[in-house]
Simulated assay, not measured.
Amino acid sequence: MKKILVIEDDELIRANLQDLLELEGFDVICADTGAQGLAQAQSICPDLIISDIMMPGLNGYDLLTSLRQDSQLAFIPFIFLSAKAEKTNIRHGMKLGADDYLTKPFESAELLDAISTRLAKQAAIAQLQHTIQELQQLNESKEDTLSVLSHDLRSPLTNMQMVISLLKTADSVEKQQSYMKILQDECVRELDLINDILDLQRLESDCAFTASEVFSVYDCLTKIINIWETRIQDNHQALTINAIPEISLVFGDRHSLERILTELLSNACKYTPPQGSINIDIDYHQTDNNSKSCFNLIFKISNTADIVATEVPNLFKKFYRASNARSSKQLGTGLGLTILEKLVEKLKGTLTVDSQAGWISFTIHLPLSRVNPLPLRVSA
């Protein structure tokens, strides 16, 4: 409800204005002097002010001048409503910054039209200011992203350049092999970052290619988990997997499903300490009682990690890296969870995160469709 401040020393006119505006659905606040009106404006910051000119003490002209000098009140729409109908009075009021000037006696429709016009203009200005603010924030975000991106792209290249110099002077096969391993790892890190940037750009521009196909959920998930099971064991982390349900053939985006599970397991490996635990729970439930083919695939990846709950919202920001990765080499590109969130959104799924008691859990629901008839098992 829009708030209108009416400043008028004539009690009858003030009461009539209040009744008229309240019937139109406005929240009306009244003042009978300029000084009282200024105090009310400073207290409630109304959406629009209607004021007489000739009032005892602080007159309408001085009131408007005071308002326009206050940064918090300067842009409130202001309408003069006065018996002073001379052209010089009207021009003086508009010169001081009034948005409109109506003379007494006035028609109700004339006043309501002036109010509607001024509020609509104010709303348009507010929307424009909001748009400008969003563009400024977007520009700042792009600058921050470019700054981080420049640093992250330079880091592997700097390491490769340094290792190449060392490789030229290596005096043993062992040193050469060690330097080649570092060089290979830094090349992979650079390629991962470039690929993640390209994937994220496609997802954000809604140009990501969706390749729906018929595949086995069981085989798809088993393949990814088997790959990461070895890495988890190498990190001396404990892995617990529940029984993966036999869902048989489905129709959907297998590549995105594999990418989502890969990002979750990659994140769990990075932030689970040695001798820590990683749990994988996979299930599904029917979403449409009238169709046995529609269901939600649910998988929950939980791991021991000291990530405070207040840090959770930041996990999906571009290039954000939590402070407790096992080492700087485990930090990755900082885009994995951002891509994960975009992929889940693209697949019309849901993603929730919970962090408590030394555990963090990511739970994802993805809608899929079974393919009929249902075979017992198929190969990927």
Rank of each mutant, 00 (worst) to 15 (best):
E204D: 05
D199Y: 06
A211P: 01
C187H: 11
N195E: 11
D234H: 08
E190N: 06
C187N: 05
I232F: 02
R231W: 07
N235S: 03
V217L: 15
D206Y: 10
R202D: 09
T222D: 12
L183E: 03
I194Q: 04
W228V: 08
D206N: 11
I232W: 02
S216H: 06
W228Q: 13
N242T: 13
E186N: 02
Y218M: 07
A208F: 15
T240F: 13
D219N: 05
F209M: 10
I225H: 04
V214P: 13
R189D: 11
S212K: 07
Q233T: 04
I232K: 00
D192M: 00
L221D: 15
L198R: 14
N226L: 11
I182Y: 04
S216K: 03
V214F: 13
S205M: 11
R202E: 07
N195Y: 11
I241G: 03
Q184T: 07
A243F: 07
A208Q: 14
Q201M: 14
Q233H: 07
N242P: 06
E204C: 00
A208Y: 14
D196S: 08
E186V: 02
D192K: 13
N195L: 08
E204I: 00
E204W: 12
K223Q: 07
W228L: 09
V217K: 12
Q233M: 04
